[in-house]
Amino acid sequence: MTDGSDKKLLDQFRDPRSRNLAFSQLVNKYQERLYWHIRRIVIDHDDADDVLQNTFIKAFKNLDSFREDSQLYTWLYRIGTNESLTFLKKKKRNIFVPFDDVSHGLSSKLEADPELSGDAIQLKLQQALLTLPTKQRLVFNMKYFEEMKYEEISEVTGTSVGALKASYHHAVKKIEAHLKNQF
């Protein structure tokens, strides 16, 4: 399942002499893609940076036990997704508010974020996305922005392809309804 270059990286990683170099190459290969995936979930840049570092630390610790029956990047995505969701859960616990209010907080962050482009359409779309349940938002991001196949999303989320299709369909309808009122 693992592609050739990833297989080579994994072999190098398992050799103690080339372990760090191989992992460094792996980070370099996937850091940007993972960063955007995480950033779309946690919204804030600094939070995304922290979650990304934790993701790679966990990957480093567990890469020896990676069985290669899935692609390396979906395995990394799974860690990144779990870390992001855990981060949001902790945030919810820390501020003792319902999860909807966390979404509201993220939405406010969007408006105040100096790193967000001044694009009004994108701001509205991201705000519409934050009205979705977190996992539906996750599925929408992977399908719409990252253009992943359902099988790949299924590997990341551990959800069936059928359930993912239904989730994406609902997400699209909700966002359209939300945005039609805005424009």
């Binding site: 960063y35 779309r40 790193e115 967000l116 482009s117 359409i121 994108q122 991201q126």
Partner: peptide
Amino acid sequence: SDLKRNAFKTP
């Protein structure tokens, strides 16, 4: 294309 444009920036 407008909808899919990346909304976020990094430092």
